[in-house]
Nucleic acid binder design. Structure first.
Length: 500
RNA sequence: GGGCGGGUAGCUCAGGUGGUAGAGCAUCGGACUUUUAAUCCGGUGGCCGCGGGUUCGAGUCCCGCCCCGCCUACCA
């Protein structure tokens, strides 16, 4: 028995386009060209025409010649003439295709074009009677035949699953998505520029770590065949960057991916991008000022303003940003004091009195962290530096001078989003070893996010690291802020989704 | 992991109390030389997420599973 043929518009549509493809080839044309010389981009052609128009004394312009390439995103046929909308990375322009202008053969060949195809057009850029800037084609050529339908012209593509799984469709159907990613690119470029201006060297350190260090997080595990050993995708570049300071670099930074084998939600993707910078002879207070300077600089570059709206919140980057110690913020927003006690049970009692859920497994540091998350962070709408964190939360930070219960650490918050983490780097190898041993105890007690002892890092500190301040910035979150994106998936080209 | 919502044509979405599966856009055929969500006429197109069950009959009701989103818990 023959299998019943499964009909669908998708298959029919593809077959129609394959037929057109064959017709193009049959008349000796190549539906997949090798190159096309454009005189300019579409956005530039529009701008150039408007400039020429403004200069023309009578308000009329003869038009300017151009060769433009792009994807056909709309087509309106009128019998013996037709209009197409052509789009490239910089914008969209209308194309007028008249039978008398391009000739009978070329006009007939329009039948083999579809929305989604790429074409190149030679002609004059002018305005139509209706005022639309249009390139009046003298000739055109097909550059790439599309075999699949683009999503609908009016509603675009809204199904978020398809948008993320097939981002190319999302971008092709929803040009504003390109703008979001352009902003992300601009943001990172601006940050590189700020760092270069401040004499930081950009470096690259390993992604494959024998010991996952520099943060508290569960790692991805992989295997090296030749060495027959397990390796971990890095959870942070921190320890390697500090080894570079030990070696003799004074100012370094790295912008690249980190990987954490943890939950996925609107603020977390398993792989994410950070900027980490280290500056010798600097401490956390000095770095706080630099952080403010850098974040204002790069965000204002992208935003073109010192204020912006994030998810309905009006945010002002006006300096100076608010600075408040973590313990003071807890007193202010939770109405309890966790600084005057270090007893775990007393701290738990006070946290519960403030309405924070506490489990028996939580130690003092974790309790402070919980209260901060539940009671403090939701109030940090305007840019704020929280600083002076309990030593239990910060195994790589120097003790605060004059108060060994605290560390010299700060975190910038904007619109209730934690965008970074910084401290005076712990450079006392004896202290660092003790802190690692504390982490090892936590790990042995069942905390699988506790940090590992990294002997080579301690050895490096014994060789000697000058006083150093370090900062990490979550670039995806910064991109969310400047693009007003509610989900981290909107600012990552290909966010992680379950395999299907 | 838990709670809520969702999955119907290529896309965007409708489908009261179970009774032959719908629209717009796209697509195909026809008309049209200044349209721009072009217009007009005609047509094609469906494993209704997957698998069970109840029923004479299930897109609809019940159970299980898969995927997505939001909220929630933990890491940035």
């Amino acid at each position: 028995m023959e299998q019943q043929e499964h009909h669908s518009t998708e298959q029919d549509l593809r077959q129609f386009r394959l037929n057109k493809l064959e017709r193009i080839r049959a008349r000796g044309d190549d539906p997949y060209k090798y190159a096309f010389t454009r005189t300019c981009m579409i956005g530039e052609a529009r701008a150039a025409f408007e400039e020429a128009e403004a200069k023309a004394s009578d308000g009329q312009s003869a038009g300017i010649p151009a060769s433009l390439g792009g994807r056909i995103v709309a087509f309106r046929g009128h019998g013996k003439s037709a209009f197409a909308d052509l789009r490239d990375e910089t914008g969209k322009i209308q194309v007028f295709l008249g039978l008398n202008q391009i000739g009978e053969a070329a006009y007939a060949a329009l039948d083999d074009l579809d929305i989604g195809d790429f074409i190149g057009v030679h002609g004059m850029v002018k305005r139509t009677k209706r005022g639309e800037i249009t390139i009046f084609a003298e000739r055109y050529e097909i550059l790439c035949k599309s075999l699949r339908a683009l999503p609908e012209k009016w509603h675009g593509l809204t199904d978020v699953e398809t948008r993320y799984r097939q981002r190319y469709l999302d971008m092709a159907a929803n040009p504003e998505v390109l703008d979001i990613f352009k902003k992300r690119i601009q943001l990172i470029a601006a940050m590189r520029e700020w760092l270069a201006d401040h004499a930081f060297y950009e470096v690259e350190t390993p992604m494959l770590h024998p010991i996952p260090g520099g943060a508290t997080a569960r790692p991805f595990i992989t295997h090296h065949n030749t060495f027959d050993c397990d390796l971990y995708l890095r959870i942070a570049p921190e320890l390697y960057l500090k080894k570079l300071i030990v070696g003799g670099f004074d100012k370094v930074f790295e912008i690249n991916r980190c990987f954490r084998n943890e939950g996925v939600d609107t603020k977390h993707n398993p792989e994410f991008t950070t900027m980490e910078m280290y500056e010798a002879y600097q401490d956390y207070m000095g770095l706080m000022g630099e952080t403010e300077d850098m974040l204002c600089s790069v965000m204002e570059t992208v935003l073109g303003a010192a204020t912006f709206t994030y998810q309905g919140m009006e945010i002002s980057l006006a300096r100076p940003w608010r600075r408040i110690t973590l313990h003071e913020a807890i007193r202010q927003y939770a109405g309890i004091d966790l600084e005057s006690t270090h007893d775990r049970d007393e701290a738990a009692k006070r946290a519960k009195s403030a309405g924070v859920e506490i489990t028996p497994a939580m130690g003092y540091g974790k309790i402070v962290d919980e209260v901060m998350s539940a009671k403090v962070i939701p109030h940090l709408i305007q840019p704020t530096f929280l600083y002076d964190y309990p030593i239990e939360l910060s195994p790589l930070a120097k003790k605060k001078r004059g108060n060994p219960a605290l560390t010299e650490r700060f975190q910038p918050f904007i619109a209730c989003l934690e965008v970074g983490n910084a401290f005076s780097e712990l450079n006392d190898p004896i202290d660092q070893r003790e802190r690692f041993m504390e982490q090892v105890k936590l790990r042995e007690a069942g905390d699988d996010e506790a940090q590992y002892l990294d002997e080579d890092f301690v050895t490096a500190l014994e060789v000697g690291m000058p006083p150093t301040a370090g900062l990490g910035i979550g670039l995806d979150r910064l991109a969310m802020l400047v693009t007003d994106s509610a989900s981290i998936r909107e600012v990552i080209f290909f966010p992680q989704l379950r395999l299907v």
